[in-house]
Amino acid sequence: MQIRVNGKELNVAAATLAALLNELDYQDATVATALNQSFVRKADREDTHLHEGDAVEILVPKQGG
């Protein structure tokens, strides 16, 4: 399935957002997720199914002003 992750086109096997984080090796990382510009809580990742063309954001803590 072709989706966009952090602005990059990726072909992934994962069917859910939780599975995608595992596939991309984020399982132990502190991340926040959004699907098609809407926030997805950590608790909802398991039940959030991915579809062709979806846009996923995976964000991490960074320096800020």
Binding site: G7, A29, V31, I58, V60, K62, Q63
Partner: peptide, 22 residues
């Protein structure tokens, strides 16, 4: 202190180490 959320760049874990430091 102020902080932000960004995409991780590269394959590193710089976000994780920054958050630990803070």
């Amino acid at each position: 202190v102020t902080v932000s959320l960004r995409r991780e760049t590269g394959n590193g874990r710089s976000g994780e180490s920054f958050w630990t430091l803070i």
